[in-house]
Amino acid sequence: MSVLVFAELEEGQVKKSSLEAVSYSLALGGEVSVIAFGTMDDSAIAELGKAGATKVLKVTDAKLAENNIMAYSSAVAEAMEKEGADFLVLAKSSLGDPISARVAIKVGAALGSNVVDLPDTSSGFKVKSSIYTGKAYAVSELKGDKKILVLKKNAAEIKEDGGAPAVEEFTPATKDEDFKAKVTSTDKATGDVLLPEADIVVSGGRGLKGPENWGMIEELAKELGAATGCSKPVSDMDWRPHHEHVGQTGIKVSPSLYIAVGISGAIQHLAGVNSSKYILVINKDPEAPFFKAADYGVVGDAFDVVPKLTEAIKAQRS
């Protein structure tokens, strides 16, 4: 059995969610090949190997330097064919979703999305997916010889004991019709921990009163190596950028720890965070609904608690 992983790079490094996809594929059994677009640091190749890849297909063709969903999909389908892969595994993301969809049609594969665990193969091939925005799971049978699995964050632990993979330059056959949509520019925060990738998320809500008060949220996040998030009204009022908006109509996160500060815990916000492993809520209202969904809670004023918590974490480190 052979599995192809579509891995995403971020400043030359492999995204954590893609390393999870590699280790997930290793656990599926069989040979794991990886396809990645763009220039990759040597350390990134080593990491892919450690996570379980035995082969890395590097695509450095200048024509494919910019995100191009149609051309990437064609290349991934070609690589599956070339590697004799019956499985494609990838992390859910703004690239992973559309590529998985297009490749599913190209190769006639069954597709499982938001997969949270390894499949049950005792009879057939059954995957567990998060549905209703984290409120429930579905266990479904994937039919057909070829299968595509789109993983939710934390579906697998990243392994670190693999060896060095074989590296191969791969130049896919490009077609003109795959270049109909052109990326003209990109606007991206650099240096920040990306919200969907983060192991810890610190989110602020309307309880923080205004954008000028985000300094303490950022400091706590920095201390924890966390990403920052927010509730919908906060991004609606432009206190924070839209890509930080968490919930039913925003980003769905599943970090190890979600810290909610001054967020009431409306059902639409909870929908985006309820698959977090642990939830810590800081809110001055003991009746805030968020406490019912939380593992840890502090009833108190955020302006007092958050800086003190940052200090306590610092103190414990030293």
Partner: peptide
């Protein structure tokens, strides 16, 4: 304008 992780991508398309 398409949202990507941590930002936005601007595209032109027929």
């Amino acid at each position: 304008t398409r949202e990507i992780e941590g930002g936005k991508e601007y595209l032109e398309i027929e």
